[in-house]
Amino acid sequence: MSAVIDVQGPLRKMPAEPGAPVHYRMKVGDTLIPLNDLIGRELQIDFEGEIRCIHCDRLTKKSFNQGFCYPCFRKLAACDSCIVSPEKCHYHEGTCREPEWGETHCMVPHIVYLANSSGLKVGITRKTQVPTRWIDQGAVAAVPMLEVATRRLSGLVEVLCKQHVADRTNWRAMLKGDVPEVDLMAERERMLETIADGVDALRAEHGEDAIRVVDESGLELAYPVEVWPSKVKTHNLDKTPQVTGRLEGVKGQYLMLDTGVINVRKFTAYHVRLQVFEPSPQQAPDLFSN
């Protein structure tokens, strides 16, 4: 087979836009490749042994926090523990690693939401990241619940919710398409009633305007998947630097091949060669019509 696409460069998180289904692009270096059009085609990804920090471009033997070298991992606010646990944000204490970064990423409106990616879960994201965050988690539906003034406050509200609902996605179930139906609008009302006392206490401390209920309908999402895997096998470029297979779908930040799945975001900053091959004669003749 001859390659009709052959590009090299560092992997980046896949850009995605809502649609019916979600529209994905693969980013390799400066090249953006529409992925929805590649469903059914043979791909080959070769890790070429080089990882460069997405912040400083330093050559690193190991990627930390999805694309950083160790010195950047230690010093950047984007890699601080409060990114994973937003209730631990310490900007207000004057100890933020990068106060200017904190101003633009943490001291801005956030959304506390409910989503269905492998069942009901609670999550938080910057207001500007809706619905990108939902797509990255592979949610089939999501609904905003509260808008809050800062990242720390979103974390404190999330802590209230986590006493009653999960905050993590079962990624294997998400990739199998094994997602139960959830009435998110009803769950939102139930959750708001359940955490009402805790939210009132936070308003008393941070101000009435710091937390407001978002009375908006949610969003349903569909993904470009031709075949759902019955068993999820993962590819790891660190252990097996060459991955080949027929692309059967894309969901979250995963490529779903007939040989297994690969989390593209996990290998951010890995320098790879991506090849897409001509279809076999048995495949539809119009696959390469564009």
Score class of each variant (00 low, 15 high):
Val227Asn: 07
Gly138Pro: 06
Glu87Cys: 09
Leu274Val: 15
Pro241Thr: 11
Arg151Ala: 10
Glu220His: 12
Cys72Gln: 05
Thr95Lys: 14
Asp37Ser: 14
Pro109Trp: 01
Asp167Thr: 11
Ser63Phe: 00
Val214Phe: 00
Thr128Lys: 15
Ile51Asp: 05
Gln282His: 10
Glu48His: 03
Ala16Arg: 08
Gln282Asn: 12
Pro34Lys: 02
Lys233Asn: 13
Arg133Met: 08
Phe64Met: 11
Ser117Leu: 01
Val84Gly: 15
Arg265Trp: 00
Pro21Ile: 02
Met26Asn: 09
Leu219Glu: 10
Ser117Tyr: 06
Leu192Ala: 07
Leu32Ser: 13
Val232Pro: 07
Glu181Leu: 09
Lys62Glu: 15
Ala196Met: 09
Glu103Thr: 08
Gly155Lys: 02
Ala201Cys: 08
Cys106Arg: 03
Leu160Lys: 05
Arg97Met: 08
Pro86Ala: 11
Gln44Trp: 00
Asp136Leu: 07
Gln137Asn: 01
Val165Asp: 10
Pro86Ile: 06
Leu35Val: 14
Gln283Arg: 05
Phe68Gln: 08
Leu192Trp: 00
Ile45Phe: 05
Glu158Pro: 06
Val243Gln: 04
Leu237Gly: 13
Pro180Thr: 07
Met145Ser: 12
Cys56Lys: 06
Pro15Leu: 06
Asp37Asn: 12
Pro131Lys: 07
Lys231Leu: 04
Leu221Ala: 12
Ser217His: 11
His271Gly: 08
Gln8Phe: 00
Gly29Lys: 05
Asp57Asn: 12
Leu153Thr: 05
Gln137Ala: 01
Gln163Ser: 12
Val28Tyr: 02
Ser154Ile: 01
Tyr223Gln: 02
Pro34Glu: 02
Arg203Gly: 12
His271Met: 07
Arg58Met: 08
Cys53Thr: 07
Val112Thr: 11
Gly207Arg: 08
Gly155Leu: 07
